[in-house]
Design a binder for these strands. Structure first.
Lengths: 136, 136
DNA sequence: AAGCTATGAATGAAGG
DNA sequence: CCTTCATTCATAGCTT
């Protein structure tokens, strides 16, 4: 918009250019450009959010993959490498990666403790006998 | 419905029973039974929802009571006991109880922060942002 | 029916 | 590593 304004002024100030648009026309043009600028901005935001989401998904996949490899407690060095790998797909810090593994481990352990509540105490079992079909 | 169908077939196949109903009559009977089954199902649902609601109210009372005793941060062991107590009044897990206390605490704290906005400082216009995340 | 609120759950982070 | 806290997401129920 500034550029248009400057151009208009230059024209008015008797530059080498002739005046081809009235001030009114210029104002209309300015408004139209503003609209286009707004639309572009929205598009950029939209694209950014999409990209961000995708990047986060990729990073999560990488993390889960490493976690599933069972190499528990990634050492300092490992964390550095992993963080580098992850940083290829978006901003992330070593602290983030470290925390992620801490939480992931603790919570998976917690889940495993809470899931099987039938192996601890032999409660009153007047139920159907367990169908043992798991021969290996 | 299957039973009725089988019965009908047995009759048709020349069992020891005589044929006392036409296929049309049997079909009508089948439909009527289906309607009764549906009504019963609805009643069961209704009863369950009533009982469930009552149980939830009782459990909530217990939880609020414990919370109001100010014995903040129920430890792991406490959670176990509380969960057992609650389970007397309906299906509930330790995770449920744990989450409840977490949320209850956080939200009461947030309420207290939001309620009195005129007690601390008259005006604060310092927004500090430190997005520094470093590694050793 | 749309919007709002309360609430259970999941997650990132900090402290011990 | 374990616990705890703050924030956020998702949804059921209520309100208009």
């Amino acid at each position: 918009q500034q550029i248009v304004q400057q151009l208009a002024e230059e024209v008015n100030n008797g530059g080498i250019f002739v005046k081809v648009m009235t001030n009114e026309q210029i104002e209309i043009l300015r408004k139209q450009i503003a609209v286009y600028a707004f639309v572009c901005e929205q598009l950029v935001h939209y694209h950014k959010s999409l990209t961000l989401q995708h990047n986060l998904e990729v990073q999560l996949q990488i993390l889960e993959l490493i976690f599933d490899q069972g190499t528990g407690t990634p050492s300092k060095q490992k964390i550095k490498e992993i963080t580098f790998e992850l940083s290829q797909h978006g901003q992330i810090s070593e602290t983030n990666a470290y925390n992620w593994f801490q939480n992931r481990r603790a919570r998976s352990k917690r889940k495993q403790q809470a899931e099987p509540p039938n192996t601890a105490e032999p409660e009153v079992e007047t139920d159907v006998e367990s169908p043992n079909e798991n021969e290996t």
